[in-house]
């Protein structure tokens, strides 16, 4: 499912909104989450999960091509943790081998 398919489906379920409206809302939603993460905040969505930023320390790395040692600078990584209900729902259907 892509962003546009998501928009399509949400629009079909919400009668009061045009596809254009839903498009704006979906864009705003993910943009707000991204901006909030960039500020270092945690975003908690009940029934879905939470987004936060984890700090990765600087470490010694190696360029795999040249074998040259380099320092990988410390960085922030966005992280998502699914909520309990979400985890259970994903796990309900038995996998097909």
């Amino acid at each position: 499912m892509t962003r546009s398919e998501l928009i399509e489906e949400v629009a079909s379920k919400t009668a009061n909104f045009t596809k254009r409206d839903v498009e704006i809302i979906v864009s705003t939603l993910f943009k707000s989450i991204a901006e909030s993460l960039a500020r270092g905040e945690k975003i908690e969505i009940r029934g879905f999960g939470s987004f936060k930023v984890k700090q990765r320390d600087a470490r010694r790395g190696r360029n795999p091509k040249s074998g040259e040692g380099i320092i990988v600078e410390s960085k922030k990584v966005p992280f998502f943790k699914a909520g309990k209900e979400f985890k259970q729902r994903v796990n309900t259907i038995k996998p097909t081998p």
């Binding site: 499912m1 949400v10 919400t14 809302i25 969505i45 879905f48 259907i93």
Partner: peptide
């Protein structure tokens, strides 16, 4: 709509 967005994502993954 916001609820529906998250619900749709969950259903797809389900």
């Amino acid at each position: 709509v916001v609820d529906q967005v998250f619900e749709t994502i969950k259903s797809a993954l389900e």
